[in-house]
Simulated scan of single mutants.
Amino acid sequence: MASARLRWKLLRDMEGWLDLPMVVLSLVWLAIVVVELVSGTSALLETVGTVIWIIFILEFALRLWLAPDKSAYLKSSWLTVIALLVPALRIFRALRVVRAVRALRGLRLVRIVGTANRSMNALRSSLERRGFGYVVGLTLLVVGLGAAGMLNLEGARETGGGFTSYWDALWWTGMMVTTMSNEYWPQTSEGRVLTFLLSLYSLGVLGYVTATLASFFVGRDAEEKNGPIAGNAEMKALLKEVRMLRDEVRASAPPAGPARPVPSAG
């Protein structure tokens, strides 16, 4: 028990030390993935990406070594494990199975989802309050990465009639996240999976955004003196008047006289 508590303490301390550096590296990794999906890779991007990938592996290995229950930690981090394994397949590009078009698209989809997961965790740890600003930043991240993924999976060269530029894919992804209709529907299985994930995200975040906007406008109405909704100031004034009325009633009440003796029964 003492060893487990010590490991948990070391794990929390390590997370505090590595929080900011890993957030920066995650955002750089996100930018590299987006550029590679949109414009293709280069020697510089591959070098920088490989260095960051190795750092991610070392950080995950250190977390796994410190975790008291390693099996539970692996189960909770299975998506991170897959995302760390996918870049290693670049070494085996000569293999026919990796060079297959469908296999390549599947690996790209896994990389997109893994990158989104790491970027979301980085954004969550960098913002102390998970408020409306966090949701806005998260939505921009999802739309930007999702557009790059859709261009890569559903580009004109892939399907013969898909997206021709990143801006077209960005517009389409933005319309999808806002649940508006689109004229184009994905042709590949991987593009359909990514579209389904974007739709799930839009359904999850739409309720929060609607509730936040409704709360904002209700608050604005409550601040108006002639508004239809009583605000905090009006409620405080009403409570003050009730307290003053109660004090006046107590002050005007006649003092209680001496208690009369109760006559005996006999």
Results as ranks from 00 to 15, higher is better:
4 A>E: 15
4 A>G: 11
11 L>G: 03
17 W>P: 01
31 A>H: 11
32 I>P: 01
32 I>T: 04
34 V>C: 05
36 E>G: 00
43 A>Y: 11
44 L>K: 13
45 L>H: 12
51 V>D: 00
59 E>P: 02
60 F>Y: 12
61 A>W: 10
64 L>D: 01
68 P>N: 02
72 A>L: 14
78 W>H: 13
79 L>H: 12
79 L>M: 15
88 A>S: 11
90 R>N: 03
93 R>P: 00
95 L>T: 09
95 L>I: 09
101 V>Y: 03
104 L>N: 11
105 R>N: 06
106 G>D: 06
107 L>V: 09
111 R>Q: 15
111 R>W: 11
113 V>T: 05
116 A>I: 14
118 R>Y: 11
129 R>E: 05
133 G>F: 03
138 L>K: 05
139 T>F: 00
142 V>I: 13
157 R>Y: 08
157 R>C: 09
158 E>P: 01
159 T>Q: 00
163 F>G: 00
168 D>K: 10
169 A>F: 00
177 V>F: 03
180 M>Q: 15
183 E>Y: 08
185 W>V: 10
189 S>C: 03
190 E>Q: 02
192 R>A: 06
200 L>P: 10
200 L>E: 07
209 V>H: 01
214 A>V: 12
216 F>S: 01
219 G>K: 02
229 I>C: 10
236 K>Q: 12
237 A>I: 06
240 K>R: 08
243 R>W: 11
248 E>G: 04
251 A>I: 08
252 S>A: 10
256 A>G: 11
261 P>E: 04
265 A>S: 14
266 G>Q: 06
